[in-house]
């Protein structure tokens, strides 16, 4: 049984479907990334899974239970980090974390999380004075302090400096090793690439591609009918001749990409390059 299964989920705001027949699953002991541009329906999907919104159609099963009907049974078992933090602004950082930990019968030791996420340096600072990255770290600590079996992280490293991001990533990997199902939304390619076991690319409210990062990298719309030549150019090699030769045969950008093919290329191929 997957830790999370979403089947043909539909959620409309004012008659407009923000999530439109979305289907995905997430397994225990894996990091599942929901990757998509802003407005793709990622957060709405996650909020339906967290029981914060009621789906208009489709089914959501969290640890085999219904997020609405079984909310009380699920709350101790599911950790949530909201995109907007949701931390009380007048309270001090450590006080908030201790408070959230008191909701659980056997929470993780607060001191250990404080150490892991570097919360000690701002423990007595009120939430309203924290930087974006500090807030995110505190919100993550609150999401995992109850030893959840499944955690939802909505854009966990938004606004973080590189040091904070790596501390967060290390914690996420540890959760995975402990058998926790981690579901995170992101529009950061490197985050998905370095963390995710499975990536679901979401656009216009539906999943348009799924797979491991390497599956997505090797796939493509014309998979099987094209040949990719990839080589490492030694320093100083002039590539102008080669690209000219290719251009004479009609092989131009974006088929020719000098550099490394990354998840970002795949993502842009799938979701298009227009701004929204």
């Amino acid at each position: 049984m997957p830790a999370l299964s979403v089947d043909r989920l539909v959620k409309r705001y004012d008659g407009r479907a923000v999530v439109d027949g979305l289907t995905l699953t997430a397994a225990s002991g894996q990091v599942t990334a929901v990757l998509g541009p802003n407005g793709a329906g990622k957060t709405t999907t996650i909020e339906c899974c967290e029981g914060l919104r009621k789906p208009d159609a489709g089914t959501v099963r969290v640890l085999g239970l219904d997020p609405h009907a079984d909310a009380a049974a699920l709350r101790p078992r599911v950790g949530v980090m909201l995109q907007d933090g949701g931390l009380p602004s007048g309270a001090r950082a450590l006080e908030v974390l201790r408070h959230v930990s008191e909701m659980y019968a056997s929470p993780r030791p607060v001191d250990e999380l404080v150490e892991r996420l570097g919360i000690g340096s701002f423990a007595r600072t009120s939430v309203r004075r924290l930087s974006g990255g500090q807030r995110q770290r505190l919100a993550l600590a609150c999401a995992v302090v109850g030893r959840p079996e499944l955690v939802f992280l909505d854009e966990p490293s938004a606004g973080m400096d590189p040091q904070s991001r790596h501390a967060v990533w290390a914690l996420v990997k540890e959760l995975r090793a402990d058998g926790v199902a981690v579901v995170l939304t992101t529009h950061l390619m490197d985050e998905a690439e370095s963390l995710a076991d499975v990536v679901h690319v979401v656009d216009h409210g539906a999943v348009i591609a799924s797979g491991t990062v390497s599956e997505l990298l090797s796939g493509g719309s014309d998979a099987g009918n094209e040949t990719t030549v990839r080589f490492t150019a030694p320093a100083g090699l002039d590539l102008a001749e080669l690209t000219k030769w290719l251009a004479e045969r009609g092989v131009t950008d974006p088929a020719v990409t000098v550099g490394r093919r990354t998840l970002e290329h795949v993502f842009l191929d799938l979701t298009g390059r227009h701004l929204r």
């Binding site: 029981g51 709350r75 949530v80 933090g85 949701g86 931390l87 919100a139 109850g146």
Partner: peptide, 17 residues
């Protein structure tokens, strides 16, 4: 202000409800 800052939503996802 708790409502605006998402505090009510976050606490609703903890066992507090």
């Amino acid at each position: 202000f708790d409502r605006r800052n998402g505090v009510l939503r976050l606490l609703a996802t903890t066992p507090l409800g």
